[in-house]
Amino acid sequence: MDIEERIIDYINNELSTEERQEVRRLIESDDMAKSLYEEYNDLMSGIQEEPLITPDQEWAASFSESLKNRKVEQRIEENEPKETKVVHLQSRSFITKIAVAAAILIIGILGYSNINQSNQIDEVGEEVYAMRQLLESNLNNSSVSSRIKAVRYSEDVDTQDEDFIRILEKTMREDESAHVRLAATEALKKWADVPFVQESLLMALQNEEDAHVKILLIETLSSIKDANVGPHLDNLINDVESPQYIKDEAHKGIFRLDKNAKIL
């Protein structure tokens, strides 16, 4: 180990007593070692003196409150599997099955006697209806994590129900958090061949300002067979205001479209 490394360990208090004494003697007797010590000490002190950054306290208070309330939610989640055994669902994930079953139970408790609601359930299927209710109520949650979680539930749902897909589509366009929009875009991938979803993805591509979401939109759109996608990607490439990395992604997207066209 060279002297520079021993000085770093010395300042980080990672040496034994004997080693510390040895380095201390060296610093006192050797000008180069002393100069190195002073430089590293200044650097590390400078880093350690940096104050903590305080995020906005409204957010902190709101999330802290939601964690306190989690007590109830958590208990519900932990207890529900036992109560949902008799419900047969077609979606794939066990967690989703539990969530949907819970929603069905809640709907049942809150107002299954309501004739209109009952008719609606008959029309779309109680599973999809319950899932829609669950998704909608969770997407109204103020916590970003809860909204992402709600979107992720939907990834396990196999439905062509337009209302259900439209909830996700609206989230992809309108949610204030880029991370929720990103999750919704990801979830919409499997419905990307549905005309109104395609149209919405193209619209989002024009309006989206977050780079992560925009890149995912390019990837999603370039994986589907649609004649309208190419011109939209061309627009991005030709737009002088598009950052270079977006243009690069659009180029890759066009390459993928060409490749898909050749395969097809």
């Binding site: 940096e50 903590l52 950054i53 305080t54 995020p55 902190a60 999330f63 802290s64 409150e65 964690l67 306190k68 989690r70 007590k71 958590q74 208990r75």
Partner: peptide
């Protein structure tokens, strides 16, 4: 043991350090 309010207390204690960790 199931008391989620203690997670909230930990959030209050550590959120600035964690936010700083990510933000920096």
């Amino acid at each position: 043991s199931g008391d989620m309010s203690s997670i909230s207390d930990l959030f209050v204690r550590y959120h600035k350090e964690l936010y700083t960790f990510y933000y920096r």
